[in-house]
Design a protein around this nucleic acid. Structure first.
Lengths: 225, 225
DNA sequence: GACATTAAAATACCTCCGGTACGTTGTCAA
DNA sequence: TTGACAACGTACCGGAGGTATTTTAATGTC
């Protein structure tokens, strides 16, 4: 890492920002290889080429890194989603068709973002622990803003939702986090599970189960014709 | 603890069972006082009056204890639920009214069981790690059986659900786990959050948000009149 | 009732975690 | 050139989950 930047010590604000991003990027790379629980501060600092206390100069704890990463991934996902919803849902179609399209786009889009779902799932039980009130409050404020953004995106496709757009989006995030736990067996267990036919109920593909659940939720919050 | 039992060493199968239950009971008591993440093997073994390696004679890891506890709590909850649903939902009422009643009973019942929700939330990101394939598969089989039981209970109140009863019950568990993270601020943060008016969106009471979400889901999976 | 057997228990230890105290040294302004 | 300062690394801490080894309580046997 020191080879790619022209300084050994970050002294200006921009340089400090470069360090922060390097830490976040490296944590992101680790999440591509391992579950949230396995991302340790020791390994992260080793990979990023800094001593552990220096990583803690930029983030107050391991969880703070992951929380900020979740916020980043959520933003990236919403940006992608905006395009997909605009392209895939047509105003002139009947409500039921638009609802199906929205649920399909959301579930397909989420099932391509395993790491985001993993972080969603860890949010309550892991990420929001061991973090100062300030950081978790800042994250929650950001999260609320993302929720508003997402509600706007979905609401534009399904104006019939009205106020329920927010409820639906919250449920989508919730389901995304939980279903990654309920549906996709971790790679290490996949072989074992396939030998257990009575566990088939837990074998649904993430995308499928998510699409079913989101469709149901949407139909529930949409007005009856 | 040694005072309440008449043996210092568990030699028979029943005595071993007593030890197991004592460990589970103590872990349960700890969960009443602290979040899942704070229940450590050191403290648990200290409280139960055994050395740590002996706790590990009975359970293969900390997570195995919690996983078995989740299964127990789920069973207890379903037993309670059977009575509440039978008493609170009347066959002769119209479908919409029964749906509302079911959602209300489920959400009220769950919001009284904070620990169960907490464990639900930790399931994917915590409990199913660091556990052997055998244990997690056994848990999942049990969990699947509970799901079937619950689907039967709900299906008896809302026969219109048909196959969707299972989907709805799965969503209920998922929402229970996630909403405990999304809605109820942990006691340590409650004061801080109340000073942040823009965080009001995360302040919904567990019961309320759960009831709204479950009602919506139910309406989504029920047939249109 | 003394005694060997055996498995349940405790002791001592391991590695790794997140995190901190403190000494070291690049970096820049004077 | 040289302080001064803050970004860094080193060394350490307590506690986590877990294991290897020793001790000892309970039991059957003589």
């Amino acid at each position: 890492m020191l080879a790619t930047v022209t300084f050994q010590r970050a002294r200006t604000e921009e340089q400090r920002e470069i360090r922060r991003r390097a830490i976040l990027d490296e944590a992101s790379a680790m999440l591509d290889e391992m579950p949230v629980a396995a991302v340790s501060l020791n390994e992260l600092s080793r990979r990023v080429g800094l001593a552990k206390p220096n990583v803690l100069r930029y983030f107050e704890s391991r969880e703070a890194v992951l929380l900020e990463l979740l916020d980043r991934f959520l933003g990236e996902w919403l940006a992608e989603l905006a395009g997909e919803l605009a392209a895939g849902v047509h105003d002139d179609r009947p409500m039921a068709e638009r609802a199906t399209a929205v649920a399909g786009i959301l579930s397909r889009s989420l099932s391509r973002r395993v790491v985001l779902c993993d972080l969603f799932g860890a949010q309550g039980s892991v990420l929001e622990h061991n973090v100062s009130v300030e950081v978790v409050a800042r994250y929650k404020r950001g999260s609320l803003a993302r929720l508003t953004t997402m509600s706007g995106l979905v609401g534009r496709c399904l104006p019939e939702l009205g106020e329920n757009a927010t409820l639906f989006c919250l449920q989508t995030m919730v389901m995304a986090g939980a279903l990654s736990a309920y549906s996709t067996p971790p790679p290490s267990l996949r072989a074992a599970y396939e030998a257990e036919p009575d566990l088939a109920g837990f074998h649904m593909e993430l995308g499928d189960s998510l699409r079913l659940a989101l469709t149901a939720t949407l139909l529930g919050v949409l007005p009856r014709d």
